[in-house]
Design a protein around this nucleic acid. Structure first.
Lengths: 166, 166
DNA sequence: TTTTTAAGTCAGCCATGTTGACATATTTTT
DNA sequence: AAAAATATGTCAACATGGCTGACTTAAAAA
């Protein structure tokens, strides 16, 4: 029993560390999304709408298939939010030139403004968090988060200059 | 315009770094929860059930009010999953001794087994992620995630020995 | 004794995911 | 040219897990 009290008992630390991380994931994600959700609700939109606006803004001219691959939801689910966003003039749709079956999506000015405002809230939270820790901690955060991803998720991520730098 | 191409332009890096973090948060949380959801579905349970089982397991004898404070949902929402878990003998309920109005919750053996199995999946993902990075990266991850939390979330978190160590 | 608190219940609504079946236009293959 | 595959969209139905509002019961506190 005595060894349970030594400061570096590996098994105990590991178990607690892993549980602590699980809880951080739950609480941090919840707090991370809460503020943005509030602003979205004031525009009669939900988190699903923000995701679409975010990734269309990030990938102007993306087609529906590729957007579905990023979001990993069914086209019926996407259809609901996407038609809403098109009706309310957040997103513009135009026929593909090389492949006329495709609908290429991009943000309208209204969509760009909303995307900027909502994402700003989330950027601000990360900016504040990063400000309170060391740059070393930030690269550690990014490394761990990257290591949490499924292999199939990696190609969906745009690598930042920062990540490439190290 | 030339300064936009210098390798360490701070504004550009910051913007990209923050967007990259937002995307990591989205993708990592999604991949993190997906496996456990699959196992839960095979028991006819959802993510909400796991949360209840997890936090009851973590706080044996917790009363309903305190559990609601952790989960941050309405009692009607909790009621739905909790009665399910009690009916299916995952959670045991007993009257409080000092305050007889309270219902103190704890896991049955069946509940403990399920909690262990489902949480194991999530622990394993973190364990694998941590194995692929440095201990420094792990503490960085934890520091950033802690800094992401709302002030009101902090008291809900159990601090690990590790966190206290540094 | 009155009021507050802890817990539970009923009823209905909303957002966002799912499946299955099918339609239409266009591109690709044979 | 005909057939098959692809990109997109649509209708209908369902599940999960949030929400609000209204109301009850039992016990504790004032």
């Amino acid at each position: 029993m005595a060894d349970l009290k030594t400061p570096h008992h590996p098994l105990f630390l590991r178990e607690e560390e892993l549980r602590y991380s699980i809880e951080l994931m739950f609480f941090a994600y919840r707090d991370f999304t809460a503020e943005a959700d509030t602003m979205l609700a004031s525009c009669d939109l939900g988190r699903a709408h923000h995701r679409v606006i975010y990734f269309v803004g990030r990938n102007p001219g993306i087609n529906v298939s590729d957007l579905l691959a990023i979001l990993n939801i069914t086209k019926q689910s996407l259809s609901r939010v996407l038609s809403h966003l098109i009706t309310d003039d957040y997103i513009h749709q135009e026929q593909g030139t090389t492949d006329k079956r495709q609908r290429l999506l991009s943000l309208t000015d209204k969509g760009k403004t909303l995307e900027h405002d909502v994402t700003m809230i989330q950027r601000r939270r990360f900016a504040q968090a990063f400000k309170s820790v060391s740059t070393n901690d930030v690269t550690g955060f990014i490394s761990v988060m990257e290591a949490m991803l499924d292999d199939k998720t990696l190609p969906l991520l745009r690598r930042t200059p920062m990540t490439r730098m190290k």
